[in-house]
Design a protein around this nucleic acid. Structure first.
Lengths: 97, 97
DNA sequence: TTCAAATATTATAATATATGAATATATAGA
DNA sequence: TCTATATATTCATATATTATAATATTTGAA
């Protein structure tokens, strides 16, 4: 077990764990999974499908955005979100396969 | 976004999210990653490499065990842990690739 | 049966996360 | 500029997670 280098090189584990933690919430996971399948959606569409209050959705989107998993493009009053992290797309595919 | 079925079929998202959450801790992720590479290790080995108190390690192992990600085989006074979930092995491989 | 080593459990305090209501902001059109 | 719609932010509260010390359990050997 010489290679268990968490104590000397914790960064990689902290980063990857942080990614899993952000994806590790049912609402966020559902958002990401479906944004991958649908390419893009706005907040109202997401909100209606999940039947979750708008502020809750918005906060989950903010967290996904802060982790650079998704990006939003404003079109008029709407904001269209999509998944921009290719590694996340691969991970989600494996997770649900 | 018709297929965003979280409100009607939340179970799959809850289950997968729970898995990600369990893996989404730096110490647990390090344990799992290294158990995959090393095949097996006991608690003392894990503890020494991570330089983390014994009870902390033991609790993380308990959580991984409860999620059926790892299993422990007692050999005398020691318990040897290994990763038994093949999907987790694939997921971790993608995560670190 | 006692002892030492390995591991697990419990209790508790600190911190982080999640939720929803209320409020604020941004944009387009009348 | 006023209004309606879409989205974001703030705030308070509830809940969950983490870490550590202390204690308990399990096992093998003397």
């Amino acid at each position: 077990m010489q290679s268990m280098t968490y104590s000397t090189h914790p960064k990689i584990f902290e980063e990857k764990a942080e990614l899993l933690k952000v994806l590790g919430h049912p609402v966020r996971l559902c958002i990401v999974k479906n944004l991958i399948e649908q390419k893009s959606a706005n907040v109202t569409q997401i909100q209606n499908c999940l039947k979750t209050p708008q502020s809750t959705i918005s906060q989950h989107l903010a967290k996904l955005k802060a982790s650079r998993i998704i990006e939003g493009r404003r079109e008029g009053t709407e904001v269209h979100y999509s998944v921009v992290d290719e590694n996340v797309k691969r991970l989600i595919e494996v997770l649900f396969s």
